[in-house]
Write a protein that binds this DNA or RNA. Structure first.
Lengths: 194, 194
DNA sequence: GAGATGCTACCTACTAGTAGATAGATGTCA
DNA sequence: TGACATCTATCTACTAGTAGGTAGCATCTC
């Protein structure tokens, strides 16, 4: 009769959370098992029980990231009917995600360290970005047809540009430790939303 | 009687070159003195003669990067009379710099590893970005007055957005190992240039 | 219902290897 | 002769990962 209202101390999830924070604030090469161990409160050796190698950890990290972002996109679709509203909701999500100029998207953090990553994770990055481009492209097509995004060109190109801009905006804010940079970077795109 | 037509084996410059390539392709935490030593052909201990610590090396790297980019901006000003032509020349520079989706700008590479860097270098990153924003802002003002950049809004905001977009575009191309991502990301901005 | 078995989730203690950094000797050239 | 540049040899701290062990719980069997 364990108390079901209180979640078990799911260490595996705690490790993933800690690793995600670490990767997004310091990069893939910027954290060690020792950091995670200290953060979660177990020994480094015990991490290997959950994730035999750092490659396994990063794969799990990217998989969870992909799934959670897919869910976010679905949620946006469910709550916002127009292209403009969906685009604005995505921008808001990236604003939250960069956590006051402290973090970047996991995909950005991993991209820099690409050469330290397993081929599997490099593939996961591409698949994540393809999913995002596809979803953003659909948002732009909706926005053009319902008139809530102005001056739209080819949706695939708009999607690639928007993803680059969102990531670049997070990076700028982080580089200068100034959240205002994110807003400035997004201002032009935001002004096209009705 | 060394051949003066052939540059002397300036090790310090060679080390900076090697470190810059390494940082821009693998990030600040992604290369070691051992990598540089192997690349340049000396022992790791000898690197400490030129750069006592990795912090000194990264400071020198950022300083040289700042100066070389300031020179690039001056050169663009000297060779291109209109705002549109100057903006296009800057985009071309970033296209060359990302070296077929292999590299990113040093400032991007360092931003990710911000927490591993000395406060000095963090300051240098901000100063580099401020310089670039100022120069890009002036380009947008010229482009508005001479009519070679369309639909310009506040030049400071345009500058911040353009810098974010350029960096985000490099990052996207690198993340997916596909130079086309850079072009797609820049397409909308490029279409505003006359 | 008691003992045996096996699983989960950790532990201590260790390995081989790499990180940046240092001291002091050596070679080279004007 | 002496400054400069590089070397060998070494250091301490840390890296991911491994070996082997164990407490506690669940399940199976007699």
């Amino acid at each position: 009769m364990t108390d079901k209202s209180k979640a078990p101390p799911d260490r595996k999830t705690a490790l993933l959370d800690s690793a995600e924070r670490a990767a997004r604030s310091r990069g893939f090469d910027g954290f060690s098992y020792a950091d995670l161990a200290k953060d979660v409160g177990i020994r480094t050796a015990s991490i290997h029980y959950h994730f035999p190698s750092k490659a396994d950890l990063s794969t799990a990290l990217m998989q969870r990231y992909h799934e959670s972002f897919a869910a976010i996109c679905e949620e946006i679709d469910a709550h916002h009917a127009t292209g403009g509203a969906r685009l604005q909701a995505l921008i808001d999500r990236y604003r939250i995600a960069h956590n006051d100029a402290q973090w970047v998207c996991l995909c950005v953090a991993f991209s820099i360290s690409r050469e330290s990553l397993s081929p599997e994770v490099v593939g996961q990055i591409s698949r994540f970005r393809a999913m995002m481009r596809k979803w953003i492209g659909a948002v732009f097509e909706l926005g053009r047809s319902d008139g809530t995004i102005l001056n739209t060109s080819d949706s695939a190109i708009e999607a690639a540009a928007t993803l680059s801009l969102l990531e670049g905006a997070q990076l700028s804010a982080r580089a200068e430790e100034n959240p205002a940079r994110f807003e400035e970077a997004m201002a032009h795109l935001a002004s096209r939303v009705r």
